[in-house]
Simulated assay, not measured.
Amino acid sequence: MTNFEFAFFGIQVPNLDLTSWDVHNVTDAGFMFMRAQSDVINLSGWQMPKLKLAQWMFMLAPRVHELDLAGINFRNADATRALMNMNLTVIHLGPDSLLTGTNLQPFHNDAYQDMWQDIGDGTTEAPTGKNRYTYSQLMAEFKGAAPYTYVRAKNPGSADGKEPIHLFTTHGRV
């Protein structure tokens, strides 16, 4: 199968695990996960060396916070707006997961900075990497590398990274 266009459009499952799928012949993945309502889309192990079209692949999927693109080859693909309007906090990248043109954009959340941090020898929950990139820098400067993970940098004092809950009364914020 070479065409996965719209294959998971609007899917509504909490954790979409597609690790065992053979997608090495896929050439068209446009709109594939657009409007997905999953928190995590696990594509680890995917290899898409023949990918040519990836426009809007994950666009308008605001619930997705973790995405594994390590085996997705955007190097020779049209990935226009592939990551637009997403709320990613963890992104796994590989040698061919170039981000140029994907429209990876910041989203507002008081718990996070508008920066990406490499995890270094740490974990996604406790990164130790020294490098931090703005969204624009990560898209422009990531030229492919051995599989590597970046997390959205948390604001100091934000333990869980979730949007703080504010309570309001008739007299204002509590």
Rank of each mutant, 00 (worst) to 15 (best):
F6I: 07
F58G: 02
D17S: 14
N155C: 11
A159V: 11
N42G: 07
P147M: 01
N76L: 11
N25W: 08
I119M: 08
N15M: 11
S38N: 09
L138Q: 02
L104A: 01
G30I: 00
A7G: 08
G71A: 06
Q105A: 10
N15Q: 15
Q113H: 12
T89D: 13
I119Q: 07
N155P: 02
Q137F: 02
I72R: 05
L99A: 01
H65T: 15
F6K: 11
A7L: 12
T123F: 00
E141Y: 10
Q113C: 11
L88V: 04
K50W: 09
R63P: 05
L67V: 01
V151C: 06
L88Y: 04
Y148M: 15
P106S: 08
K52E: 14
T134M: 05
A111K: 02
P14L: 01
I72K: 08
H171N: 12
S97K: 07
T102I: 00
L93W: 05
Q137V: 00
M34H: 13
D110W: 10
F33T: 04
F9E: 09
V26P: 05
R75Q: 14
Y150C: 03
P14M: 00
N131F: 08
T134E: 06
Y133I: 01
N25P: 05
E66L: 09
F9Q: 10
A54M: 07
D118M: 07
G94A: 08
K143F: 04
N25D: 15
D78E: 12
L53H: 13
F31S: 10
P156I: 04
R35E: 14
P95L: 06
N85S: 15
L99W: 02
F107T: 00
H24I: 11
N76M: 11
W56M: 12
L98R: 03
T149S: 11
Q47A: 15
V40T: 15
G101Q: 02
D22M: 08
R35S: 13
A61C: 13
K162Y: 11
Q37C: 07
P14A: 06
T19Q: 14
N131S: 15
L104M: 05
F33S: 02
T89G: 10
L99Y: 01
I165N: 11
G161P: 08
K162W: 08
M115H: 10
I72D: 08
W46R: 07
L98E: 00
W46L: 03
T124L: 04
T170Y: 10
A153K: 12
T124A: 06
M1F: 12
G30L: 00
A77L: 07
P164F: 02
S97T: 07
I165F: 11
E163T: 09
L18K: 10
F74H: 07
P127Q: 07
K52S: 12
E125G: 14
I11W: 03
R75M: 11
A145C: 09
L93G: 04
T19A: 15
G144H: 05
K154Q: 09
